[in-house]
Nucleic acid binder design. Structure first.
Length: 489
RNA sequence: GGCGGCGUGGCCAAGCGGUAAGGCAAGGGACUGCAAAUCCCUCAUUCAGCGGUUCGAAUCCGCUCGCCGCCUCCA
């Protein structure tokens, strides 16, 4: 049974899409005022993997919507400091955002609505809230009257009274209640603005997600996800707007990922303790980065460090090394065929069967882990276990039994697929390059047979410099290209 | 003040009532001309501390200590 932790109920609950086969999923996207930092990457990677798991292993069709917030105070500030207008700023960072997604091998969303394309719908929503008495206008500003909605606070589990005790609620004379939030903001001169029944201005932050989620996914969506820093006020304020209007549940499941920290402190632009995502991508592959995030449970905070990424790199390498070895063995014409044609003995057969049985056991372990609130950490542990088993089998199996290794490779690739791991076809392309490589390998083999190890080692060293790692295995010499992978020291 | 989370081996990190996964590191061994990789063995009688519930607790409850987040913008 597939289960997810729902912030709304604070419980792990069985999840099924509300209408048969289609999951309607909305993930809060970026405000495009700067490049993303690595903390921003966590929800992208985690929810992408969740989505793909639901598609590939559950067989559901996921409609995945992620907004782009392209109008906001931070964008206005940025426009001033960069000397451009807000449209240019938004375009620049939106473009960088999509480039990053692609570099990270993240599946594109089905829809990426931009806030400024939905101003009219937001105005309509706000007008409805005014009509129903959930909002009020003051000097061109419109505020939500939070006390009017009894369930306000049901997601974050706080009451309006709690909020009033908080010392950090901004004093605003225009509000009836300090906890009321802005739906429409009257613009100052020079700021971007849109016409509305309440004068020129721009929408508050929380309306856009409601409008865009409902536009693409309907009044009740299956999953709404984002960072746990959005629980309050952002998601709380979305719920109140949506449900005040429709009277229906806005989102059935609310998912929230934990924050990244740097030496224990939350990573935040304003703390200055962040690293840009594009900087990390220069040093590590997308695969290593995915592994890094997916080996920590998505709801817990965790500490970023380059050492931790180095460790992830090695762990990924361990898996790919096995895939390389086996694929090299099965595709290389240099391996003697006689090994693969011997008749099978009963004992060998049972050895193979045991191995295959163990593989399916570990596959089940992976699925159980993933089904249990996206336990990617345990799921990856199961893959590592497959690697150990396969390495063992690789050493000991003989004859036709060895073909079972191809099953192991296929399994690892299929389990890695939703996680964006272990997909790379490592073998160098068949072609002139490979012919040349094998010429060198043959030459080196002859030198080694003549005990001329000095020259043989030089060939190996020089090829390594060019990015081709030679390994002398019992099955012969194999070659792996490091051009597409993290190079180990 | 209110709401919430976390504390597991040298490090990272699962497990959330049935007797401690996985990775990295380290030590020993096998294999190898040397490498690389791989395999075998060792590496938490114990899960911050103290009580309680239970046949049984890292897992539930209470208290204490330590760290962190939200309550303003933040993924």
């Amino acid at each position: 049974m597939f289960k997810l932790y729902n912030t709304l109920t604070r419980k792990v609950e069985p999840f099924q899409p509300q209408d048969g086969n289609t999951v309607k999923m909305y993930v809060c996207g970026p405000t495009v005022y700067d490049y993303l930092h690595i903390g921003n990457l966590r929800p992208l990677i985690v929810y992408n993997a969740l989505r793909r798991y639901m598609e590939i292993f559950k067989g559901w069709k996921v409609i995945y919507v992620q907004n782009i917030t392209d109008i906001d105070d931070k964008i206005i500030d940025r426009a001033v400091t960069e000397g451009q207008d807000t449209v240019e700023i938004a375009a620049k960072y939106t473009d960088a955002y999509f480039k990053l997604l692609s570099a990270l091998d993240l599946s594109p969303a089905d829809h990426n609505p931009r806030a400024t394309d939905y101003i009219a719908e937001m105005i309509k929503l706000i007008a409805t809230l005014l009509d129903k008495g959930y909002a009020y206008e003051q000097d061109g500003n419109v505020y939500f009257r939070v006390t009017k909605f009894a369930q306000y606070g049901k997601l974050s589990r706080r009451s309006v009274e709690d909020l009033q005790q908080g010392a950090r609620i901004a004093v605003n004379e225009k509000k009836e209640n300090p906890a009321d939030f802005t739906l429409w903001k009257a613009s100052k001169t020079g700021e971007p603005q849109w016409d509305s029944p309440w004068g020129a201005g721009r929408p508050g932050w929380h309306s856009e997600c409601v409008v865009m989620a409902q536009k693409f996914l309907g009044e009740t969506i299956d999953i709404h996800a984002g960072g746990n820093d959005l629980i309050f006020p952002h998601h709380e304020n979305e719920i109140i707007q949506a449900e005040a209007v429709t009277g229906k549940t806005f989102a059935r499941f609310w998912l929230h990922n934990g924050m990244l920290t740097t030496r224990g402190a939350e990573m935040h632009k304003s703390h200055g303790n962040f690293v840009y995502a594009h900087q990390v991508i220069k040093k590590f592959t997308a695969e290593t980065i995915h592994y890094f995030y997916l080996t920590r449970h998505y709801r817990k905070p965790f500490d970023y460090s380059e050492e931790a990424l180095e460790e992830a790199k090695k762990a990924v390498w361990r898996v790919n090394n096995l895939l390389d070895n086996i694929e090299a063995e099965f595709s290389s014409s240099h391996i003697a065929k006689q090994d693969q044609t011997s008749e099978k003995s009963d004992s060998a057969n049972s050895y193979r069967n045991n191995f295959l049985q163990r593989l399916s056991q570990l596959k089940q372990q992976y699925i159980t882990a993933m089904d249990n609130d996206f336990g990617s950490v345990d799921a990856i542990a199961a893959v590592q276990e497959i690697v150990r088993e396969a390495n063992r089998f690789h050493i000991r199996a003989t004859g036709d039994d060895r073909y079972a290794l191809q099953d192991a490779v296929a399994l690892i690739r299929s389990l890695g697929l939703p996680l964006s791991l272990f997909q790379r076809r490592e073998r160098t392309e068949i072609g002139r390059e490979e012919e040349l490589l094998h010429l060198l390998i043959d030459l080196r083999q002859r030198l080694r047979e003549k005990k001329d190890f000095a020259l043989g080692d030089k060939i190996r060293q020089d090829l390594a410099q060019l990015g081709f790692i030679l390994k002398d295995t019992p099955q012969g010499t194999t070659v792996v290209s490091t051009t597409q992978t993290d190079q180990l020291k």
